[in-house]
């Protein structure tokens, strides 16, 4: 068992959903294309983890929980990326303290990125995992909108640019 797989197993709750991430895609050309998509999504997760790390923890936004969930996503995506010969992007640098509005903006970017990716990804075995991560970002957005006293459910079709 590789260290990365061990890491994933330690992640516990995400194991079942992340399992397909450990499979390699069949075609080399597809791997490159899927690798680019995964690298982009991993960058989003790294940024989300950073933002939640700078958000004041506690109600109404459970920033530590959201940071840990983004890290779980990043771990799974990192394994999938490495299995396709890709290299993880360098994590962004920490800049100042984030606000719930900033976090919501980032969640909307994440939703749009996953929405695009599920239409472009070549390896269909990854799709349930990407959708399960996208759904988690939708839930983060609900909590952030409620914290900001906005409509928590502004769209029936998540992934479009809706505040």
């Amino acid at each position: 068992m590789s260290p990365s797989r061990r890491e994933l197993l330690r992640a516990g709750r995400g194991v079942a959903a992340a399992a397909p991430l450990t499979r390699a895609a069949p075609a080399a050309a597809q791997e490159r294309s899927d690798g680019d998509l995964l690298r982009g999504l991993l960058g989003v997760e790294q940024e989300a983890a950073l933002v939640y790390g700078t958000l004041r923890p506690g109600p109404p936004v459970p920033a530590r929980l959201f940071r840990e969930q983004s890290r779980e996503h990043a771990r799974g995506l990192g394994i999938a990326l490495r299995n396709r010969g890709g290299r993880e992007p360098r994590p962004p640098a920490r800049v100042g303290r984030a606000s719930p509005a900033h976090a919501l903006e980032l969640e909307l970017q994440a939703l749009a990125a996953y929405h695009r990716a599920v239409g472009e990804l070549g390896d269909a075995s990854l799709l349930p995992t990407l959708a399960s991560i996208m759904a988690n970002h939708g839930q983060h957005a609900v909590v952030l909108r409620q914290a900001l006293r906005r409509d928590p459910l502004p769209s029936a079709f998540a992934g479009a640019r809706v505040r």
Partner: peptide
Amino acid sequence: PELRRLAAAIATSEAEHTAVLRG
């Protein structure tokens, strides 16, 4: 791809509903 995007978007919407109801 269009159907996959739609399914992912609705799955996310349903997940958002669970977050509201759980709250």
